[in-house]
Design a protein around this nucleic acid. Structure first.
Lengths: 229, 229
DNA sequence: AAAGCAGTGTGCAATATTGAACAGATTGCA
DNA sequence: TGCAATCTGTTCAATATTGCACACTGCTTT
Protein backbone atom coordinates (compact mmCIF):
# COMPACT_ATOMS: atom_id res chain seq x y z
CA UNK A 1 0.00 0.00 0.00
CA UNK A 2 0.82 3.67 -0.01
CA UNK A 3 3.20 3.29 -2.89
CA UNK A 4 4.96 6.26 -4.38
CA UNK A 5 3.00 6.34 -7.58
CA UNK A 6 2.74 10.01 -6.89
CA UNK A 7 6.05 10.38 -8.66
CA UNK A 8 4.87 8.64 -11.83
CA UNK A 9 3.75 11.04 -14.47
CA UNK A 10 0.02 10.93 -14.91
CA UNK A 11 0.30 12.68 -18.22
CA UNK A 12 0.60 10.22 -21.03
CA UNK A 13 2.07 11.44 -24.28
CA UNK A 14 -0.25 11.21 -27.21
CA UNK A 15 0.14 12.41 -30.73
CA UNK A 16 -0.67 15.96 -29.78
CA UNK A 17 -0.94 17.16 -26.22
CA UNK A 18 -0.44 15.02 -23.14
CA UNK A 19 -3.72 13.92 -21.68
CA UNK A 20 -4.48 13.65 -18.04
CA UNK A 21 -5.79 10.16 -17.69
CA UNK A 22 -6.09 10.30 -13.94
CA UNK A 23 -8.09 13.51 -14.07
CA UNK A 24 -10.53 11.95 -16.49
CA UNK A 25 -10.86 8.93 -14.30
CA UNK A 26 -11.44 11.05 -11.24
CA UNK A 27 -14.22 12.92 -12.99
CA UNK A 28 -16.16 9.79 -13.90
CA UNK A 29 -18.73 8.34 -11.56
CA UNK A 30 -18.68 4.93 -9.96
CA UNK A 31 -17.29 1.88 -11.65
CA UNK A 32 -13.60 2.20 -11.04
CA UNK A 33 -11.39 0.80 -8.30
CA UNK A 34 -7.72 1.24 -7.55
CA UNK A 35 -6.12 -2.02 -6.46
CA UNK A 36 -2.69 -3.04 -5.33
CA UNK A 37 -1.36 -6.50 -6.10
CA UNK A 38 1.71 -8.13 -4.62
CA UNK A 39 4.18 -9.88 -6.90
CA UNK A 40 2.91 -13.21 -8.25
CA UNK A 41 -0.65 -12.40 -7.27
CA UNK A 42 -3.28 -13.39 -9.78
CA UNK A 43 -5.40 -10.61 -11.27
CA UNK A 44 -7.82 -12.70 -13.28
CA UNK A 45 -8.01 -16.27 -14.52
CA UNK A 46 -8.62 -17.61 -17.97
CA UNK A 47 -12.26 -18.73 -18.15
CA UNK A 48 -13.50 -16.21 -15.59
CA UNK A 49 -16.34 -13.87 -16.58
CA UNK A 50 -14.90 -10.78 -18.26
CA UNK A 51 -16.57 -7.61 -17.08
CA UNK A 52 -13.82 -5.05 -16.69
CA UNK A 53 -10.79 -3.45 -18.25
CA UNK A 54 -7.57 -2.77 -16.35
CA UNK A 55 -5.12 0.07 -16.56
CA UNK A 56 -1.66 -0.67 -15.22
CA UNK A 57 -0.46 2.33 -13.28
CA UNK A 58 2.69 0.83 -11.84
CA UNK A 59 4.53 -2.49 -12.10
CA UNK A 60 4.67 -5.32 -14.59
CA UNK A 61 2.01 -7.83 -15.55
CA UNK A 62 2.09 -10.96 -17.67
CA UNK A 63 -0.74 -12.27 -19.82
CA UNK A 64 -0.67 -16.05 -20.15
CA UNK A 65 -2.76 -18.73 -21.78
CA UNK A 66 -3.00 -22.35 -20.67
CA UNK A 67 -3.73 -25.01 -23.26
CA UNK A 68 -6.02 -27.97 -22.79
CA UNK A 69 -2.90 -30.07 -22.37
CA UNK A 70 -1.81 -27.88 -19.50
CA UNK A 71 1.03 -26.11 -21.30
CA UNK A 72 1.38 -22.42 -20.56
CA UNK A 73 2.31 -19.66 -23.01
CA UNK A 74 3.02 -16.04 -22.19
CA UNK A 75 1.47 -13.87 -24.88
CA UNK A 76 2.45 -10.49 -23.46
CA UNK A 77 4.26 -8.76 -20.64
CA UNK A 78 3.00 -5.28 -19.90
CA UNK A 79 4.61 -2.22 -18.42
CA UNK A 80 3.11 0.73 -16.60
CA UNK A 81 0.79 2.81 -18.74
CA UNK A 82 -0.81 -0.08 -20.61
CA UNK A 83 -4.34 -1.43 -20.67
CA UNK A 84 -5.29 -5.09 -20.52
CA UNK A 85 -8.38 -7.24 -20.34
CA UNK A 86 -9.95 -5.13 -23.07
CA UNK A 87 -11.29 -8.17 -24.93
CA UNK A 88 -14.57 -7.87 -23.06
CA UNK A 89 -15.30 -4.61 -24.89
CA UNK A 90 -15.54 -6.62 -28.08
CA UNK A 91 -18.11 -8.88 -26.50
CA UNK A 92 -15.93 -11.65 -25.12
CA UNK A 93 -17.93 -13.06 -22.21
CA UNK A 94 -14.97 -14.87 -20.63
CA UNK A 95 -11.29 -14.14 -20.15
CA UNK A 96 -9.26 -15.96 -22.76
CA UNK A 97 -6.07 -15.52 -20.79
CA UNK A 98 -4.89 -15.10 -17.22
CA UNK A 99 -3.21 -11.97 -15.87
CA UNK A 100 -0.56 -12.20 -13.17
CA UNK A 101 1.39 -9.47 -11.42
CA UNK A 102 5.12 -9.94 -12.04
CA UNK A 103 6.09 -7.25 -9.56
CA UNK A 104 4.13 -5.30 -7.00
CA UNK A 105 1.52 -3.47 -9.02
CA UNK A 106 -1.03 -0.79 -8.66
CA UNK A 107 -3.77 -0.84 -11.22
CA UNK A 108 -7.12 0.67 -11.95
CA UNK A 109 -10.02 -1.66 -12.57
CA UNK A 110 -12.67 -0.07 -14.78
CA UNK A 111 -16.02 -1.74 -15.21
CA UNK A 112 -16.95 -2.50 -18.76
CA UNK A 113 -19.97 -0.20 -18.64
CA UNK A 114 -17.90 2.70 -17.40
CA UNK A 115 -15.19 2.11 -19.99
CA UNK A 116 -17.77 2.02 -22.76
CA UNK A 117 -19.26 5.25 -21.48
CA UNK A 118 -15.86 6.90 -21.31
CA UNK A 119 -14.98 5.84 -24.82
CA UNK A 120 -18.27 7.24 -25.98
CA UNK A 121 -18.06 10.54 -24.18
CA UNK A 122 -14.43 11.40 -23.66
CA UNK A 123 -12.43 12.15 -26.75
CA UNK A 124 -9.08 12.03 -25.06
CA UNK A 125 -9.70 8.64 -23.51
CA UNK A 126 -10.91 7.32 -26.80
CA UNK A 127 -7.80 8.55 -28.55
CA UNK A 128 -5.51 7.17 -25.87
CA UNK A 129 -7.21 3.84 -26.16
CA UNK A 130 -6.86 3.77 -29.93
CA UNK A 131 -3.15 4.46 -29.55
CA UNK A 132 -2.86 1.62 -27.10
CA UNK A 133 -4.68 -0.79 -29.38
CA UNK A 134 -2.54 0.20 -32.34
CA UNK A 135 0.68 -0.49 -30.46
CA UNK A 136 -0.61 -3.77 -29.17
CA UNK A 137 -1.64 -4.73 -32.66
CA UNK A 138 1.77 -3.95 -34.06
CA UNK A 139 3.39 -5.98 -31.34
CA UNK A 140 1.11 -8.97 -31.92
CA UNK A 141 1.66 -8.81 -35.65
CA UNK A 142 5.39 -8.72 -35.02
CA UNK A 143 5.21 -11.71 -32.71
CA UNK A 144 3.20 -13.61 -35.28
CA UNK A 145 5.59 -12.85 -38.12
CA UNK A 146 8.42 -13.87 -35.87
CA UNK A 147 6.79 -17.23 -35.25
CA UNK A 148 6.06 -17.76 -38.93
CA UNK A 149 9.60 -17.05 -40.05
CA UNK A 150 12.17 -17.62 -37.41
CA UNK A 151 13.83 -20.48 -35.56
CA UNK A 152 13.57 -20.71 -31.81
CA UNK A 153 17.09 -19.30 -31.54
CA UNK A 154 16.12 -16.09 -33.30
CA UNK A 155 12.86 -15.86 -31.43
CA UNK A 156 14.71 -16.04 -28.15
CA UNK A 157 17.08 -13.31 -29.30
CA UNK A 158 14.15 -11.12 -30.24
CA UNK A 159 12.36 -11.63 -26.93
CA UNK A 160 15.52 -10.73 -25.03
CA UNK A 161 15.88 -7.56 -27.06
CA UNK A 162 12.26 -6.60 -26.54
CA UNK A 163 12.47 -7.24 -22.81
CA UNK A 164 15.55 -5.02 -22.68
CA UNK A 165 13.52 -2.34 -24.43
CA UNK A 166 15.83 -2.30 -27.40
CA UNK A 167 15.31 0.81 -29.46
CA UNK A 168 13.83 2.84 -26.63
CA UNK A 169 15.68 5.87 -25.31
CA UNK A 170 16.30 4.27 -21.95
CA UNK A 171 19.01 1.74 -22.73
CA UNK A 172 18.21 -0.24 -19.64
CA UNK A 173 19.93 -3.28 -21.14
CA UNK A 174 18.70 -5.30 -18.19
CA UNK A 175 15.87 -7.74 -18.53
CA UNK A 176 13.30 -8.09 -15.79
CA UNK A 177 15.32 -9.48 -12.88
CA UNK A 178 14.48 -12.99 -11.88
CA UNK A 179 13.06 -14.02 -15.21
CA UNK A 180 13.44 -17.78 -15.46
CA UNK A 181 14.39 -19.86 -18.46
CA UNK A 182 11.02 -21.49 -18.08
CA UNK A 183 9.30 -18.13 -18.57
CA UNK A 184 11.46 -17.31 -21.55
CA UNK A 185 10.55 -20.66 -23.06
CA UNK A 186 6.87 -19.84 -22.59
CA UNK A 187 7.28 -16.55 -24.40
CA UNK A 188 9.36 -17.94 -27.22
CA UNK A 189 7.24 -21.01 -27.69
CA UNK A 190 9.86 -23.69 -27.08
CA UNK A 191 11.25 -25.84 -24.29
CA UNK A 192 13.40 -24.82 -21.40
CA UNK A 193 16.24 -27.07 -22.45
CA UNK A 194 16.37 -25.25 -25.74
CA UNK A 195 16.44 -21.87 -23.97
CA UNK A 196 19.23 -23.05 -21.71
CA UNK A 197 21.18 -24.21 -24.73
CA UNK A 198 20.88 -20.91 -26.59
CA UNK A 199 21.45 -18.77 -23.52
CA UNK A 200 24.76 -20.50 -23.01
CA UNK A 201 25.62 -20.01 -26.63
CA UNK A 202 24.76 -16.31 -26.39
CA UNK A 203 26.78 -15.97 -23.23
CA UNK A 204 29.84 -17.63 -24.73
CA UNK A 205 29.60 -15.22 -27.63
CA UNK A 206 29.32 -12.27 -25.26
CA UNK A 207 25.80 -11.33 -26.37
CA UNK A 208 24.31 -11.65 -22.91
CA UNK A 209 25.59 -11.88 -19.37
CA UNK A 210 24.05 -13.52 -16.35
CA UNK A 211 25.46 -15.06 -13.25
CA UNK A 212 23.31 -17.18 -11.03
CA UNK A 213 21.23 -14.37 -9.62
CA UNK A 214 20.87 -10.76 -10.60
CA UNK A 215 18.97 -10.98 -13.84
CA UNK A 216 20.12 -10.99 -17.41
CA UNK A 217 22.11 -8.23 -19.07
CA UNK A 218 21.74 -7.92 -22.79
CA UNK A 219 24.27 -6.46 -25.18
CA UNK A 220 21.62 -5.28 -27.57
CA UNK A 221 23.98 -4.27 -30.33
CA UNK A 222 25.66 -7.64 -30.48
CA UNK A 223 22.57 -9.73 -29.90
CA UNK A 224 20.63 -7.97 -32.62
CA UNK A 225 23.10 -9.45 -35.07
CA UNK A 226 21.56 -12.86 -34.45
CA UNK A 227 18.30 -11.59 -35.90
CA UNK A 228 19.86 -10.59 -39.16
CA UNK A 229 21.60 -13.88 -39.73
CA UNK B 1 -15.23 -15.09 -56.58
CA UNK B 2 -17.02 -13.98 -53.46
CA UNK B 3 -19.78 -12.64 -55.68
CA UNK B 4 -22.50 -10.79 -53.81
CA UNK B 5 -20.38 -8.82 -51.40
CA UNK B 6 -21.84 -5.77 -53.03
CA UNK B 7 -25.04 -6.46 -51.16
CA UNK B 8 -23.27 -6.18 -47.79
CA UNK B 9 -24.87 -3.55 -45.64
CA UNK B 10 -22.93 -0.31 -45.38
CA UNK B 11 -24.31 0.06 -41.89
CA UNK B 12 -21.95 -1.66 -39.57
CA UNK B 13 -23.32 -2.99 -36.31
CA UNK B 14 -21.75 -1.51 -33.28
CA UNK B 15 -22.55 -2.02 -29.65
CA UNK B 16 -25.54 0.28 -29.86
CA UNK B 17 -26.89 1.67 -33.08
CA UNK B 18 -25.61 0.94 -36.58
CA UNK B 19 -23.47 3.74 -37.89
CA UNK B 20 -23.41 4.98 -41.40
CA UNK B 21 -19.78 4.91 -42.31
CA UNK B 22 -20.33 6.03 -45.88
CA UNK B 23 -22.33 9.06 -44.78
CA UNK B 24 -19.56 10.13 -42.46
CA UNK B 25 -17.04 9.71 -45.19
CA UNK B 26 -19.11 11.70 -47.61
CA UNK B 27 -19.33 14.56 -45.16
CA UNK B 28 -15.58 14.88 -44.68
CA UNK B 29 -13.48 17.10 -46.88
CA UNK B 30 -10.66 16.08 -49.16
CA UNK B 31 -8.30 13.28 -48.35
CA UNK B 32 -10.27 10.24 -49.38
CA UNK B 33 -10.35 8.32 -52.66
CA UNK B 34 -12.43 5.40 -53.79
CA UNK B 35 -10.35 2.92 -55.78
CA UNK B 36 -11.09 -0.33 -57.57
CA UNK B 37 -8.48 -3.05 -57.77
CA UNK B 38 -8.57 -6.13 -59.99
CA UNK B 39 -7.76 -9.51 -58.52
CA UNK B 40 -4.05 -10.00 -57.74
CA UNK B 41 -3.36 -6.28 -58.03
CA UNK B 42 -0.99 -4.89 -55.46
CA UNK B 43 -2.35 -2.21 -53.11
CA UNK B 44 0.83 -1.33 -51.28
CA UNK B 45 4.26 -2.85 -50.83
CA UNK B 46 6.21 -3.59 -47.72
CA UNK B 47 8.79 -0.83 -47.28
CA UNK B 48 6.74 1.84 -49.04
CA UNK B 49 6.01 5.09 -47.17
CA UNK B 50 2.86 4.67 -45.09
CA UNK B 51 0.61 7.69 -45.31
CA UNK B 52 -2.91 6.34 -45.50
CA UNK B 53 -5.43 3.91 -44.06
CA UNK B 54 -7.69 1.73 -46.19
CA UNK B 55 -11.26 0.64 -45.72
CA UNK B 56 -12.27 -2.46 -47.65
CA UNK B 57 -15.74 -1.89 -49.03
CA UNK B 58 -15.96 -4.99 -51.20
CA UNK B 59 -13.78 -8.01 -51.93
CA UNK B 60 -10.95 -9.81 -50.15
CA UNK B 61 -7.42 -8.64 -49.41
CA UNK B 62 -4.37 -10.43 -48.05
CA UNK B 63 -1.69 -8.89 -45.87
CA UNK B 64 1.69 -10.53 -46.38
CA UNK B 65 5.21 -10.07 -45.09
CA UNK B 66 8.39 -11.06 -46.93
CA UNK B 67 11.43 -12.02 -44.89
CA UNK B 68 14.99 -11.07 -45.70
CA UNK B 69 15.46 -14.61 -46.96
CA UNK B 70 12.65 -14.08 -49.41
CA UNK B 71 10.09 -16.30 -47.68
CA UNK B 72 6.54 -14.98 -47.65
CA UNK B 73 4.04 -15.23 -44.82
CA UNK B 74 0.38 -14.25 -44.92
CA UNK B 75 -0.52 -12.59 -41.64
CA UNK B 76 -4.16 -11.84 -42.42
CA UNK B 77 -6.86 -12.14 -45.01
CA UNK B 78 -9.51 -9.46 -44.79
CA UNK B 79 -13.17 -9.35 -45.76
CA UNK B 80 -15.42 -6.46 -46.66
CA UNK B 81 -15.95 -4.02 -43.82
CA UNK B 82 -12.44 -4.15 -42.43
CA UNK B 83 -9.69 -1.55 -42.19
CA UNK B 84 -6.05 -2.12 -42.98
CA UNK B 85 -2.81 -0.19 -43.19
CA UNK B 86 -3.64 1.48 -39.88
CA UNK B 87 -0.11 1.05 -38.56
CA UNK B 88 0.79 4.50 -39.87
CA UNK B 89 -1.53 6.05 -37.28
CA UNK B 90 0.81 4.78 -34.59
CA UNK B 91 3.72 6.50 -36.26
CA UNK B 92 5.05 3.74 -38.50
CA UNK B 93 6.75 5.60 -41.35
CA UNK B 94 6.89 2.58 -43.67
CA UNK B 95 4.57 -0.30 -44.48
CA UNK B 96 5.67 -3.40 -42.62
CA UNK B 97 3.64 -5.64 -44.90
CA UNK B 98 2.25 -5.76 -48.42
CA UNK B 99 -1.44 -5.71 -49.27
CA UNK B 100 -2.75 -7.58 -52.31
CA UNK B 101 -6.28 -7.85 -53.68
CA UNK B 102 -7.38 -11.50 -53.67
CA UNK B 103 -10.56 -10.76 -55.63
CA UNK B 104 -11.81 -7.67 -57.41
CA UNK B 105 -12.01 -5.05 -54.71
CA UNK B 106 -13.34 -1.61 -54.12
CA UNK B 107 -11.78 0.24 -51.28
CA UNK B 108 -11.57 3.67 -49.76
CA UNK B 109 -8.16 5.21 -49.27
CA UNK B 110 -8.12 7.71 -46.42
CA UNK B 111 -5.13 9.93 -45.91
CA UNK B 112 -3.54 9.68 -42.51
CA UNK B 113 -4.29 13.31 -41.71
CA UNK B 114 -7.96 12.91 -42.56
CA UNK B 115 -8.23 9.71 -40.55
CA UNK B 116 -6.65 11.36 -37.55
CA UNK B 117 -9.06 14.27 -37.88
CA UNK B 118 -12.03 11.94 -38.13
CA UNK B 119 -10.97 9.96 -35.09
CA UNK B 120 -10.63 13.21 -33.24
CA UNK B 121 -13.92 14.72 -34.28
CA UNK B 122 -16.34 11.94 -35.09
CA UNK B 123 -17.44 9.81 -32.22
CA UNK B 124 -19.01 7.13 -34.33
CA UNK B 125 -15.94 6.65 -36.47
CA UNK B 126 -13.78 6.50 -33.43
CA UNK B 127 -15.98 3.85 -31.90
CA UNK B 128 -16.12 1.84 -35.10
CA UNK B 129 -12.38 1.95 -35.33
CA UNK B 130 -11.95 0.81 -31.75
CA UNK B 131 -14.21 -2.14 -32.48
CA UNK B 132 -12.15 -3.01 -35.51
CA UNK B 133 -8.92 -2.85 -33.58
CA UNK B 134 -10.32 -5.00 -30.80
CA UNK B 135 -11.36 -7.74 -33.20
CA UNK B 136 -8.06 -7.61 -35.00
CA UNK B 137 -6.27 -7.85 -31.69
CA UNK B 138 -8.26 -10.87 -30.63
CA UNK B 139 -7.51 -12.55 -33.93
CA UNK B 140 -3.79 -11.84 -33.72
CA UNK B 141 -3.66 -13.06 -30.16
CA UNK B 142 -5.43 -16.22 -31.26
CA UNK B 143 -2.99 -16.74 -34.10
CA UNK B 144 -0.09 -16.24 -31.75
CA UNK B 145 -1.40 -18.69 -29.17
CA UNK B 146 -2.00 -21.15 -31.97
CA UNK B 147 1.61 -20.87 -33.05
CA UNK B 148 2.90 -21.22 -29.50
CA UNK B 149 0.90 -24.33 -28.75
CA UNK B 150 -0.04 -26.30 -31.78
CA UNK B 151 1.56 -28.51 -34.39
CA UNK B 152 1.36 -27.58 -38.04
CA UNK B 153 -1.43 -30.12 -38.48
CA UNK B 154 -3.65 -28.36 -35.95
CA UNK B 155 -2.73 -24.96 -37.27
CA UNK B 156 -3.80 -26.01 -40.75
CA UNK B 157 -7.09 -27.29 -39.38
CA UNK B 158 -7.67 -24.00 -37.60
CA UNK B 159 -6.92 -21.91 -40.68
CA UNK B 160 -9.31 -23.97 -42.76
CA UNK B 161 -12.03 -23.48 -40.16
CA UNK B 162 -11.42 -19.75 -39.96
CA UNK B 163 -11.44 -19.40 -43.74
CA UNK B 164 -14.75 -21.25 -43.82
CA UNK B 165 -16.07 -18.73 -41.30
CA UNK B 166 -16.68 -21.42 -38.75
CA UNK B 167 -18.99 -20.18 -36.04
CA UNK B 168 -20.60 -17.48 -38.14
CA UNK B 169 -24.27 -17.73 -39.02
CA UNK B 170 -23.61 -18.31 -42.68
CA UNK B 171 -22.42 -21.88 -42.79
CA UNK B 172 -20.84 -21.30 -46.15
CA UNK B 173 -18.58 -24.29 -45.55
CA UNK B 174 -16.64 -23.33 -48.66
CA UNK B 175 -13.23 -21.84 -48.45
CA UNK B 176 -12.05 -19.16 -50.83
CA UNK B 177 -12.05 -20.90 -54.23
CA UNK B 178 -8.70 -21.33 -55.85
CA UNK B 179 -6.68 -21.10 -52.68
CA UNK B 180 -3.43 -22.94 -53.26
CA UNK B 181 -1.56 -25.21 -50.90
CA UNK B 182 1.27 -22.75 -51.17
CA UNK B 183 -0.93 -19.98 -49.75
CA UNK B 184 -2.17 -22.22 -46.98
CA UNK B 185 1.41 -23.03 -46.11
CA UNK B 186 2.19 -19.31 -45.90
CA UNK B 187 -0.69 -18.76 -43.49
CA UNK B 188 0.05 -21.77 -41.33
CA UNK B 189 3.77 -21.18 -41.26
CA UNK B 190 4.98 -24.43 -42.77
CA UNK B 191 5.93 -25.95 -46.11
CA UNK B 192 3.70 -26.90 -49.00
CA UNK B 193 4.66 -30.54 -48.83
CA UNK B 194 3.42 -30.61 -45.25
CA UNK B 195 0.13 -28.99 -46.27
CA UNK B 196 -0.30 -31.49 -49.07
CA UNK B 197 0.30 -34.31 -46.65
CA UNK B 198 -2.27 -33.13 -44.12
CA UNK B 199 -4.84 -32.16 -46.73
CA UNK B 200 -4.77 -35.71 -48.01
CA UNK B 201 -5.09 -37.01 -44.50
CA UNK B 202 -8.05 -34.73 -43.84
CA UNK B 203 -9.65 -35.77 -47.11
CA UNK B 204 -9.28 -39.47 -46.40
CA UNK B 205 -10.93 -38.90 -43.05
CA UNK B 206 -13.77 -36.99 -44.71
CA UNK B 207 -12.96 -33.72 -42.98
CA UNK B 208 -12.51 -31.78 -46.21
CA UNK B 209 -13.31 -32.27 -49.84
CA UNK B 210 -11.57 -30.93 -52.90
CA UNK B 211 -11.21 -32.17 -56.40
CA UNK B 212 -8.66 -30.66 -58.72
CA UNK B 213 -10.46 -27.37 -59.26
CA UNK B 214 -13.46 -25.87 -57.53
CA UNK B 215 -12.08 -24.91 -54.16
CA UNK B 216 -12.08 -26.66 -50.85
CA UNK B 217 -15.15 -27.71 -48.89
CA UNK B 218 -14.76 -28.01 -45.17
CA UNK B 219 -16.83 -30.17 -42.87
CA UNK B 220 -16.43 -27.84 -39.95
CA UNK B 221 -17.96 -30.14 -37.39
CA UNK B 222 -15.64 -32.99 -38.19
CA UNK B 223 -12.54 -30.92 -38.77
CA UNK B 224 -12.90 -29.06 -35.50
CA UNK B 225 -12.30 -32.38 -33.77
CA UNK B 226 -8.70 -32.20 -34.91
CA UNK B 227 -8.23 -29.10 -32.77
CA UNK B 228 -9.34 -30.79 -29.61
CA UNK B 229 -7.02 -33.72 -30.05
C1' DA C 1 -1.00 -31.45 -80.92
C1' DA C 2 2.87 -29.90 -78.50
C1' DA C 3 4.87 -27.13 -75.20
C1' DG C 4 4.71 -24.52 -71.12
C1' DC C 5 2.98 -23.69 -66.60
C1' DA C 6 1.07 -23.88 -62.12
C1' DG C 7 -0.63 -26.94 -58.80
C1' DT C 8 -0.51 -31.43 -56.61
C1' DG C 9 1.07 -36.26 -54.52
C1' DT C 10 5.05 -38.57 -52.80
C1' DG C 11 9.37 -40.02 -51.04
C1' DC C 12 13.56 -39.21 -48.50
C1' DA C 13 17.78 -37.65 -46.14
C1' DA C 14 19.32 -33.81 -43.31
C1' DT C 15 18.08 -31.11 -39.64
C1' DA C 16 15.54 -29.16 -35.70
C1' DT C 17 12.76 -29.87 -31.88
C1' DT C 18 10.75 -32.21 -28.23
C1' DG C 19 10.33 -34.49 -23.76
C1' DA C 20 12.30 -36.61 -20.21
C1' DA C 21 15.97 -37.54 -17.28
C1' DC C 22 19.61 -36.48 -13.85
C1' DA C 23 23.20 -33.81 -11.31
C1' DG C 24 24.85 -29.60 -9.47
C1' DA C 25 23.90 -24.77 -7.86
C1' DT C 26 21.26 -21.50 -5.57
C1' DT C 27 17.63 -19.70 -2.82
C1' DG C 28 14.15 -19.49 0.82
C1' DC C 29 12.65 -20.92 4.96
C1' DA C 30 11.90 -23.65 9.29
C1' DT D 1 22.18 -24.95 10.08
C1' DG D 2 19.92 -28.09 7.16
C1' DC D 3 16.15 -29.30 4.26
C1' DA D 4 13.11 -28.49 0.47
C1' DA D 5 12.20 -26.18 -3.59
C1' DT D 6 13.61 -23.98 -7.63
C1' DC D 7 16.59 -23.05 -11.31
C1' DT D 8 20.22 -24.36 -14.33
C1' DG D 9 23.48 -27.25 -17.43
C1' DT D 10 23.53 -31.19 -20.04
C1' DT D 11 22.60 -35.37 -22.27
C1' DC D 12 19.97 -38.37 -25.54
C1' DA D 13 16.60 -41.06 -28.11
C1' DA D 14 12.17 -40.27 -30.30
C1' DT D 15 9.76 -37.40 -33.13
C1' DA D 16 8.58 -33.53 -36.24
C1' DT D 17 9.88 -30.59 -39.74
C1' DT D 18 12.33 -28.96 -43.52
C1' DG D 19 14.13 -28.72 -48.29
C1' DC D 20 14.50 -30.89 -52.14
C1' DA D 21 13.47 -34.07 -55.76
C1' DC D 22 10.60 -35.95 -59.38
C1' DA D 23 6.36 -37.62 -61.62
C1' DC D 24 1.78 -36.58 -62.71
C1' DT D 25 -2.34 -33.76 -63.48
C1' DG D 26 -5.15 -30.28 -65.70
C1' DC D 27 -5.09 -25.90 -68.20
C1' DT D 28 -3.64 -22.35 -71.41
C1' DT D 29 -1.00 -20.78 -75.24
C1' DT D 30 0.92 -21.28 -79.64
Amino acid sequence: MASKTGKETKKIRLGRQPIDWEAHLARMGTGKTVIEYGANRNIFWQGEPADSVFFLRKGKVKIAVTSQQGKEAIVATLDAGEFFGEGCLAGQPLRIASAVALTDCTLVRIEKALMTRMLHQEHDISELFVTHLLSRNIRFEGDLVDQLFNSSEKRLARILLLLAHFGKESRAETVHPGISQESLAQMVGTTRSRVSHFMNKFRELGFVDYSGSGGVTVNSGLLSVVLHD
